[in-house]
Design a protein around this nucleic acid. Sequence first.
DNA 1: TAACAGTGGAACGGATTGTTCCGCTCTGCT
DNA 2: AGCAGAGCGGAACAATCCGTTCCACTGTTA
Lengths: 214, 214
Amino acid sequence: MSTTSGKTLGGRRAQAARNDEVILEAARAVFLDDPKAPIAAVAERAGVGISALYRRYAGKEDLLRQLCHDGLRRYVAEAETALDEPDDWAAFTGFLARVVDADVHSLTVHLAGTFTPTEEMGRDAMRAGELATALVDRAHASGRLRPDAVVHDLGLLLEACAAVRVPDPERTRQLRRRQLAVLLAGLSSVPDADPLPGPPPAAGEFDWRWRRRE
Amino acid sequence: MSTTSGKTLGGRRAQAARNDEVILEAARAVFLDDPKAPIAAVAERAGVGISALYRRYAGKEDLLRQLCHDGLRRYVAEAETALDEPDDWAAFTGFLARVVDADVHSLTVHLAGTFTPTEEMGRDAMRAGELATALVDRAHASGRLRPDAVVHDLGLLLEACAAVRVPDPERTRQLRRRQLAVLLAGLSSVPDADPLPGPPPAAGEFDWRWRRRE
DNA sequence: TAACAGTGGAACGGATTGTTCCGCTCTGCT
DNA sequence: AGCAGAGCGGAACAATCCGTTCCACTGTTA
């Protein structure tokens, strides 16, 4: 299976191209499960040698950064998709459901601090914040979101869902959906509800992970 | 400051007795923050040498086990206290608030798997389960808890609250209270609510941590 | 068939950490 | 007063883990 030159690659090249995918997928799975897993675990899971990894990424930090950036882009993409939805409340809940399903939170927040971020990531993170605010504003406008909920309550909510984790991934997804349902019910407007306690979560309070830890 | 013999200990003995407390407190603080912190971190935080630790505990595992067991007993004690409360719903919410404030969840579930448990811990864990069930039953009886909530939803709830963590402990407590308020609102009965999705959390699904991991 | 991209995996060096050990201090008792 | 030893600090040790490098090998491409 060889071509003299050009597009459809056979044999070795194809295998290499496929490895690009396999490795990224393995890395995602492994680091989602444990943010400080050894890099060898990724190679093992991908069914490749360590060289195959180092051929593609300068080091562990590089891999983590790319993974995290991908997650961030996914978050932005889902938010943009959601903003196309005409129904304000459905846009809000649909966005959250998709972000929770994709475990974007573990990919972004939980990986932060393990690498030095790029400028572009900073820009994307800012954009993510704006989009989230827009979604929350619309949810407020719909009257279905309780008035004392703020944008940064999303951080709490996503953290809560990401914290649910059992060995089986599919079961994890189900339980997270349940958790999300409870949280959304709790964030819904009801006639005579006690206001949420304490100063609401503020801007910088969840970014502390981004400032290098270990 | 010396006594010929007897009860009020002065000097060295007193210091040692005080260290018992100081060390346990330091261990609690350190391991709550990071379940796999090095044992030296505990000594440093307590302001003592490593010897002071090894004089009291056979090893790291011993310390962790004791810490976890203490947490378990605290859980049981709070549950028993709650069951004395006449108001069913107040008993339920009060229990959760105290358990969340004391961060009992991090002390028990998050430390499990780092040591081999004793039989007594097994018994206490079982008792904890019974008490929790009693509290949930009473909450159901009060009509304030949505009918499709089950005991093991408490596991989800506690996990969600324990997941909230910022550098400042007091602020962490505030944010957890807020999270708890949202979750309790979500678990409250409302006339025409969609049922919670998915198979509800079941008995063995959160005990998986107790079966040794790393 | 010669060069080489792509790879597997052993090997290395540095870092981390649980535990032991030794010497010191200060107490409690005679 | 003086001694035996409880209590302690912290260096030292051994084991482990992990990121990265390196080299031999394989199949492909030209």
